[in-house]
């Protein structure tokens, strides 16, 4: 069996999000979606677009401001502290940082400056120049000018799985990033993905950056017909798969910058 993975710097970004380091140990970065509180003009770390070091530094600064000794919190208290203070990452922010690291390592370019932003207007363009990460959404990544469709048999690390208008009310967009692909006799066996998500059963505090796998049982069937496993759950109990099934538009895409 052969394996294709992202570059080391991109894998480092993933592992940093999977284990935010604190004195008492490490914990996965929580999920945060700014859609709920709709804050504007704030620090990027407080709107779900921070780097792992941004999140850790901000946690220390907030703790200091609130006279809390972060080092004395138990791991679950620490996780709750992060979530209560809107410290986390959203799915497109996570994808951005991983892909950016990949592009810098392999192509020596940055993702933000090689994307097309559908929104127009002088002010919006200026804001995008100043705060690119905050303006990268699932829709921007899925835009025809930024990415192209990929067949299952052609999947490679760095490809993204896009779900548009998913969730119970079809109001969510979601993206998964493929970080590893396993091959057997040049045929794809398993696709490994990373994403930031909150399942319905997670409640307020049990969500985070997670990884899962998709076992390709039949290359000719669409991806949602394959076997998705995450958190030891598959089939109907796998809520990521449920999201995929509910989405109005589902696609596997590859950012143009990765191919050029």
């Amino acid at each position: 069996m052969t394996t294709k993975t992202l570059s080391q710097p991109a894998r480092n970004v993933i592992s940093q999000y999977l284990s935010l380091s604190f004195v008492q140990g490490s914990l996965p970065c929580p999920y945060f979606n700014n859609r709920r509180i709709a804050t504007r003009g704030n620090l990027r770390v407080l709107i779900g677009k921070g780097t792992p070091s941004d999140i850790i530094t901000e946690a220390h600064i907030i703790a200091m401001r609130e006279h809390i000794d972060l080092n004395e919190l138990a791991m679950d208290q620490l996780r709750n502290f992060l979530i209560d203070h809107n410290l986390g990452i959203d799915c497109s922010g996570l994808t951005y940082y991983i892909l950016n690291a990949e592009l810098k390592a392999t192509k020596h370019i940055s993702l933000a400056h090689n994307l097309h932003y559908p929104k127009s207007g002088f002010l919006r363009k200026l804001i995008i120049q100043l705060r690119p990460v905050e303006n990268i959404s699932v829709k921007v990544l899925a835009d025809e000018k930024n990415s192209q469709l990929v067949e299952i048999k052609d999947i490679e690390p760095g490809d993204i799985i896009i779900m548009i208008k998913t969730g119970l009310q079809h109001k969510l967009n979601h993206v998964l990033l493929i970080h590893q692909v396993d091959f057997e006799n040049k045929k794809i066996q398993t696709v490994h993905y990373t994403h930031a998500i909150q399942w319905q059963i997670d409640g307020k505090y049990n969500h985070s950056v997670r990884q899962g796998i998709i076992e390709i049982t039949d290359e000719n069937k669409p991806l949602i017909k394959q076997k998705w496993i995450e958190q030891n759950r598959s089939g109907e109990n796998n809520y990521t798969l449920n999201h995929a099934k509910r989405s109005k538009a589902f696609s596997i895409r590859r950012i143009h910058s990765l191919t050029s």
Binding site: G41, N42, L130
Partner: peptide
């Protein structure tokens, strides 16, 4: 930095 670039 906070309001223009979103960073500290």
């Amino acid at each position: 930095g906070r309001y223009i670039f979103g960073v500290r």
